[in-house]
Computed example of a mutant assay.
Amino acid sequence: MAAELDIRAEFRPDPAQPHLNKFENKTPNSGYCGSYPSQCEPYGQFSLQAPIQFYSSQPITAFHTDPRQGAMFGVPSEWRELTVVHRQTQEQETVKVRVAGLGSRYVTHNPIELVGGGVTGTRAHQLLWTGSSWVNAPTPCRGTGYGLLTVTWYQFFWRTPTTGDGVCAKQARFDIPWLRYEYLDFSYELITPNPLGMSSGEYTGTYHYTVGPGQDFDMGDVMIPSDSMLSLNFTLSVEHDLKVEVPPGGNRIELVPQGGWQAWLNQGRKPARLFRDQTFTISASSRFKMQLECERVMGDTCALRNAAGHQVPLNLSVSLPNGLNRPDGSAVSRQPLLLSGAGTEQFDPRYYVNRRPGTLHFEVAREHTETMLAQGGSTYSGQATVIWDSEL
C-alpha cells in the first residue's frame, strides 16, 4: 500500500522582481510548518503530514544496545532526483528533494506507571528515555524546541542532518510494552530547475519513497509502518510572459535616406540607402524564436515592388534589449531576419525582461536603391510580417 501527497510549485514572472527566477512552492503546509511557519520559512523548508502510522511489533526493552530494537528514525535526508515531464511536449526537467526534518506523536502505556510512579506526566516522559524527553533530539538530529504532551502521548519534531548518517535513535530506560507513532510529519527542501528555460504549461512527476525496516524511511526493526510506500506527486506550473508592443502607427514603415529626401531634391545627392528603425517594447520570461513572412519573396527575404513590377529586396534585422541573448550568451544586435529563420531560432532571457525597448531595422541596400531611383518617381511597397514565437 502507498500513501500519496501532492507538491505543487509555480512560476509567474513578477515585474516588481524581474531577477527572481524561481518557482514558488504553492503546497499548503500541514504538520509542523503549518503550525509553526516561522520555524520553517527562514530555512526555505515546508512540511507535510503523511497518514502513515507505525506500530511496535514487540516490546521495547530497557537499555537496549541495538538502536534498531527501539525508537529509531532513519530518513532520506540526502538529495534525491526525479524527472518531471511536460504534459504536452514531453520535455523533461530535473527536480531535487530532500527530507529536512521529521516528527510525529508517540503514544504508549501510561509513562508514569512505566517509570514506577510518583512523578508528573512531564517528568515521566523525561525519565522514560536516555537523554530526557523527545524535545531533546538525539544526535545527529537537532531539536526545534517543539514538544507537546499529555500523560500518554508526546508530540515532537526534529531537524535531520544534511550529510552523513541520518539515523537518530532514542534509547528506552524502562521496559515499554508497546509504542505507536500516529502519523509521519516531515519537512522538505526543493531545488527546482530554471523556469526561464522551460516551456509554458505543467510538468509532472512522482518520487516513490519506500517505508519500513531497511527502507528509505527506516524506523528500525520494531516499528512497522501501516504503508510500505510514500509517493510524492510533483506538479510544476510555468506561466510565461511574452508580449510585444509597437507604438501607434508603427506597423507602417516609410523608408527614407539619411537626413530625408531634401539632400537629393535640393542638391542632387543620391541616397546611399533607404532605411527606417522602428522601436518596440518587449516583455519576455521565456525563450522564443523570431520568424519572417512575406507578401512577396525575393531570395531569403521580402521584396518591395513598384507598379511596373520592378522588385528590390528588403533587408530586415532585429536588436533586442539587454537580458535577451543568443543561446551562447552573446547580445543580439542587428541580427538578420530571414525567411529560413537562420540565426533567430532561439533567444533566451537571462532574467524577466519587462517592457524593455528593442528595434526592428528595415533597409534597402545601396545597389538596390540606385535601381529604384532609376525607375523615376515610382512608389515601392510590400508587406513583411515579423513573428515572435514562444513555441520552439
Rank of each mutant, 00 (worst) to 15 (best):
P349T: 07
N29W: 01
L82T: 10
S317C: 04
V115F: 00
H361Q: 01
P138N: 02
W153K: 06
T144W: 09
T371K: 10
L149S: 14
G31Q: 08
L265N: 15
V222M: 04
G329F: 02
V75Y: 08
L255N: 09
W388C: 03
E245N: 12
R350L: 14
H125E: 02
G214T: 13
A384S: 06
Q39D: 13
P357Y: 11
T150E: 13
L179K: 07
V115G: 03
G358K: 09
A169P: 08
S283L: 02
F288Y: 07
L314Q: 01
N266I: 12
G268F: 05
A331Q: 15
R180Q: 15
D241R: 14
Q267G: 12
C141Y: 14
I282Y: 03
R123P: 00
P111H: 01
V167L: 02
G70K: 00
P76G: 06
N29M: 01
A307R: 10
V135L: 00
R173S: 08
D66Y: 00
D300Q: 04
P257G: 08
N322Y: 13
Q155N: 15
P15I: 05
P225R: 03
L339G: 03
S283E: 06
R68E: 00
S77N: 11
Q215T: 00
S390F: 11
T108R: 12
G164R: 03
